[in-house]
């Protein structure tokens, strides 16, 4: 488990698509001595985010591309030592699940006050996870209803598309041609699908797709 030691302040990078909201977020962290704001970005660009060497990346998903796994994957690729806290306006267990599956350590809904945000983010810096308690209940209910089985809803739209083509018997090269993606990108999607569905073979993926009714 990654734990942030706040000897000279927790290094926070903010990713916020709207300039005024970015100023608000940076101000909230700058006003607390526990934090040092080391970056303020509109998108999670790999080169710049990595240079900032943040302990925490606080990203507002509203305004970012809809592919949550790709967006958070970019954050983690750019700053592999950082813990990622997601901000969102969606009180949605599905969205929270997607974020956690993609590697986020926190899912924070933006109808909370600045002091509540600071408490949540400090929890994450101490090595724990944080999820909005109103959403966590829904997630637990879903998990309970599915008896702990992996959920197809955890896949992004693109991953579901790739899964459908796997189930149709296409190889990675054919999928890449069909979706106009590089073969490497398709391989990454397939790896993430296997990880999310907790499977290790394409035939198992096909079974999941058929059961979920996407083919």
């Amino acid at each position: 488990m990654k734990t942030v030691v706040a000897s000279v302040g927790i290094r926070v990078a903010v990713v916020e698509s709207q300039v005024l909201f970015a100023k608000a977020l940076c101000g909230i962290f700058a006003d607390d001595d526990a934090f040092v704001v080391v970056g303020d970005y509109r998108t999670p660009a790999i080169d710049t985010l990595g240079l900032a060497e943040p302990d925490l990346v606080v990203i507002d998903l509203d305004g970012q591309p809809v592919d949550v796994a790709r967006t958070l994957g970019t954050c983690l690729e750019a700053a592999p030592k950082a813990r990622v806290c997601v901000l969102s306006m969606h009180l949605s267990p599905e969205m929270m699940q997607r974020c956690l599956t993609a590697g986020a350590e926190a899912y924070i809904v933006k109808d909370i006050s600045p002091p509540e945000l600071l408490r949540a983010v400090k929890t994450v810096a101490e090595g724990q996870s944080y999820v909005d308690p109103r959403v966590a209940g829904g997630l637990l209910r879903r998990r309970s209803q599915s008896n702990g089985k992996p959920d197809i809803m955890e896949l992004s739209a693109r991953e579901a598309e790739v899964l459908k083509l796997i189930a149709e018997g296409l190889a990675n090269k054919q999928i890449s041609a069909r979706l106009h993606l590089s073969e490497k990108t398709v391989k990454n999607h397939v790896s993430r699908i296997f990880s999310k569905l907790n499977i290790s073979a394409r035939t198992q993926a096909a079974v999941h797709a058929i059961r979920a009714g996407i083919v």
Partner: peptide, 10 residues
């Protein structure tokens, strides 16, 4: 401002 997080800043 529905996002209470940003309301004090504004």
């Amino acid at each position: 401002e529905p996002q209470a997080l940003f309301a004090p800043y504004f």
